[in-house]
Design a protein around this nucleic acid. Structure first.
Length: 798
DNA sequence: CAGAAGCGCCTTTTT
DNA sequence: GGCGCTTCTG
């Protein structure tokens, strides 16, 4: 095992150059549980990635033995990019991703044990809500007494607490009804073969909990588990971590490195439990705790402000940021007579920053507590002709036209997906009204089938129209067998009538553009190397990987392999046929798991507008924090309880620590809120800052024009560089090193092949290379299947 | 069946 | 004040 002399030898590795003592200590910790308290701007991501690289390079773990979890796709991508820049390595075997992404991968690999169809589709928040609404209609739930939104919140909350319907405590008639609906919702999802986000987590947790062989396999496999933003984990996520790592004394073989910052916990409102940090230390008997307090981002006036503010919170693990960067400029504070004047001042000031002081626009952020506040500022920016970008709008895959297109695609994969069926059965309009659909739903419920299966039972013109729709989808499915994903999408756009519909619409141009973007996005998804990684149910043979030497991974051949590979117990393999997801199904999964960016045209030099929440993890040369008023920030809804106020203060802490060089704080005496002008006193947070770091300034312009804040842009026009453009996540695939191509599998389209289980079939198409190669084969009685060639044993028939 | 008009809501958000 | 959703009306 690990010894001190090895650590000393490792200390000279170039990987570790430039790390401060705390960072270095964190990176080179022995393989035991540890908690890293990483302050804002303290190089947290660097520590995390260097730790993984160091473990790999010193031969303490192979890529397959690493599990690294983040919350956002962005963070996961960042980690992977940095890691592959440090080390040449095959990222394929590594489990780096978001909680949900990894759970998805896990469930695909064990879909039978998880009681799911292999191509199960994922409901996003919108889909989930419409599924609940549909259910309420069907079971005549009083939507006044049980608003679907509230039911959604209830169901998600239960799942996040790990509770299935029978586990939920029933206290009165109301809660009984809610639990009943929860159960109905579960039945509906199961019948349709769909899972929501919470279900991804909960079901993988339960599978680990209930299946000894699976659990044991992963426990032995993951020697190092690294968790980012640990303060944001919820109850279920922490339970999942415990399940996959094993508590001390439960035959655990892994070391957890949890990285977090209790002062930046701002998601309690959605179930995050900072308390998981303390629980982790206790339950895992954590011996190593390291604080990263050296800040590399901001000047000390900014840090002093942040430190002073956060010291007003009682419940802290305790941490103080420090810097070598010097005092820098004072934090500028401004009082404006109105929200309108505040916006005017912000725009004035930032033009000065750009013109007079050489700041780049994209290095300036305007932050606010709630999104509604962006409007006044946008108006001013628009009038002044300053390019800006607003974060937090609709994301690519959430746009209505994209959701429609995805619904058609989902029906190609799974005709029983009732949510998708209802979404597009009459879109574009084809004479199928609400009455018809009600009848159809009744018939389906009576027969206990899905909607497509009930179509035949409807008589008359209504039945004929429905039949035509189903036939259309069926025809499309047949026609596109053997087509590339791009071709499938293009044909779908045509034959569904979506393109035609939007072409007829005066305002449909943007939508058509988005639909075309969808086809391109799909294409780059397919060509991206290893695209199927998250969706392919390849049997996991980790023993092979664990016995590989570091040299074969492209690592330092002289580094000793310190750990003998642990023989992982054989894993129950579901997909011994090699059957895998079609590119289409994989793409649909991707679309659900990664909603796409919500920012237009990255790279454009535009001022950044966003909520404080959205700014977490980012940094800018200059930051404006606006609307610092009691009731707004801290928000009035949070004032009732102590924890709420502390979370608001952490939010302010996050906002302050975004700034590198210059920080502005502003508040307005009056503000237009919910349609009426309200008077606010300045935020208590301003009082909690150190006087000597601040400078109260008066606006440069002679007096504020206190115009009515109701002024708005005629027609709601948005500038071209606003939020209206499209941007997809597919433009910049993580730069993975090219892998050597495996010997040819010898399978080509048109061939007759034989499969052990499915018999004889004809190859329709082949995609991908090496391990990712897969073939689409038509097996007659067994239908068309996608097979992973690395697994499926296909022989060519003459 | 589609556009218009009215109603009610309104913190933060990722997967 | 404005947006999204439901209901009304041609």
């Amino acid at each position: 095992m690990f010894s001190n002399s090895d650590a000393r030898a490792a200390a000279d590795l170039p990987l570790l150059a430039g790390l401060n003592p705390e960072q270095r200590a964190a990176v080179t910790l022995p393989p035991e549980h540890a908690l890293i308290l990483a302050g804002a701007g303290s190089g947290k991501t660097r520590v995390l990635t260097t730790r993984i690289a160091w473990l790999l390079q010193t031969g303490q773990v192979s890529p397959g033995g690493v599990l690294a979890v983040t919350f956002t796709n962005k963070a996961a991508k960042e980690m992977l990019t940095r890691l592959t820049a440090m080390l040449p390595l095959n990222a394929r075997g590594m489990w780096i991703g978001t909680f949900h992404g990894l759970c998805n991968r896990f469930l695909r690999a064990h879909y039978k044990l998880a009681h799911l169809p292999q191509a199960f589709q994922i409901l996003d928040t919108q889909d989930q809500l419409s599924a609940i609404k549909r259910l309420c209609k069907q079971f005549q739930v009083d939507e006044e007494r049980f608003p679907p939104k509230q039911l959604q919140w209830f169901i998600s909350g239960c799942k996040e607490d790990g509770l299935r319907p029978p586990d939920v405590e029933v206290r009165d008639a109301e809660s009984r009804k809610k639990v009943e609906i929860y159960q109905l919702y579960e039945d509906q999802c199961q019948r349709e073969g769909v899972v929501d986000f919470g279900e991804l987590m909960l079901r993988s947790y339960e599978l680990l909990r209930d299946n000894d062989a699976v659990r044991e396999h992963y426990r032995r496999r993951f020697r190092h588990i690294l968790i980012d933003e640990f303060q944001d984990t919820n109850k279920l996520q922490y339970a999942w971590i415990k399940m996959i790592a094993g508590l001390p004394g439960e035959g655990s073989h892994s070391a957890i490195l949890a990285v977090g910052d209790d002062d930046q916990s701002i998601y309690a409102f959605r179930g995050a439990r900072v308390g998981n940090m303390a629980d982790f230390v206790r339950e895992f008997s954590v011996q190593h705790q390291i604080k990263l307090e050296q800040n590399y981002r901001s000047h000390s006036n900014i840090l002093d402000s942040a430190n002073a503010l956060i010291s007003h919170n009682q419940r802290r693990l305790g941490k103080n940021l420090r810097t070598d960067a010097g005092a820098g400029e004072p934090v500028r504070v401004v009082e404006a007579p109105s929200d309108f004047a505040e916006a005017e001042w912000v725009v004035d000031e930032l033009r000065q920053l750009v013109k007079g002081e050489g700041y780049e626009r994209k290095e300036i952020a305007v932050l606010y507590r709630s999104n509604a506040q962006s409007r006044v500022i946008e108006t001013q920016l628009f009038n002044a002709g300053v390019p800006y970008r607003v974060y937090g709008g609709l994301r690519f895959f959430e746009r209505a036209e994209i959701k429609h297109a995805l619904a058609y695609l989902r029906l190609l994969e799974n005709p029983r997906d009732d949510t998708s069926f209802l979404r597009v059965v009459n879109f574009p309009p084809r004479g199928i009204g609400a009455r018809t659909l009600e009848q159809l739903q009744d018939a389906a419920r009576a027969a206990g089938t899905s909607l497509v299966d009930a179509v035949g039972s409807l008589p008359g013109r209504a039945g004929a129209n429905l039949g035509a729709f189903v036939a259309k989808v069926d025809v499309l499915r047949e026609q596109t067998a053997g087509c590339t994903l791009r071709e499938i999408i293009e044909q779908m756009l045509e034959s569904s009538g979506l393109i035609e519909h939007y072409r007829a619409d005066r305002e449909g141009a943007d939508r058509i553009e988005n639909l075309e973007e969808l086809a391109s996005a799909a294409e780059s998804f397919v060509t991206q190397e290893g695209f199927g990684r998250d969706a392919v149910a390849l049997p996991v043979d980790e023993t092979a990987e664990l016995t590989q030497s570091p040299a074969s991974q492209g690592l330092d051949p002289d580094a000793p392999l310190l750990n003998e590979p642990l023989p992982a117990p054989p894993l129950p393999v579901d997909a011994d046929t090699g059957e895998t997801l079609s590119p289409l199904a994989a793409f649909l999964t991707h679309a659900a798991l990664e909603a796409g960016d919500n920012q237009a045209q990255a790279g454009q030099d535009a001022v950044q507008l966003m909520s404080v929440h959205a700014s977490k993890g980012l940094e800018f040369d200059a930051v404006f924090i606006t609307g610092l008023e009691e009731g707004l920030f801290p928000h009035e809804n949070s004032l009732s309880d102590h924890d709420g106020l502390e979370e608001e203060r952490r939010l302010m802490y996050v906002a302050i620590t975004r700034a590198r060089r210059r920080l502005y704080l502003s508040h307005a005496q009056t503000r237009m809120l919910h349609g009426q002008t309200r008077y606010h006193i300045k935020s208590r947070f301003l009082e909690e800052l150190p006087e000597d770091a601040l400078k109260w300034i008066t606006p440069r312009r002679s007096g504020f024009a206190d115009m009515p804040a109701s002024f708005s842009i005629a027609g709601g026009a948005r500038p071209a560089w606003g939020n209206s453009g499209i941007h997809s996540n597919f433009s910049a695939p993580a730069a993975l090193p090219a892998r050597k191509t495996e010997p040819s599998h010898g399978i080509a389209a048109g061939q007759q092949v034989f499969h052990n289980k499915f018999g004889e079939g004809k190859v329709l198409s082949v995609q991908g290379e090496g391990d990712d190669a897969r073939a689409q084969v038509s097996f007659g009685r067994h239908g068309v299947k996608w097979l992973a060639l690395a697994v499926a044993k296909l022989t060519v028939v003459e």
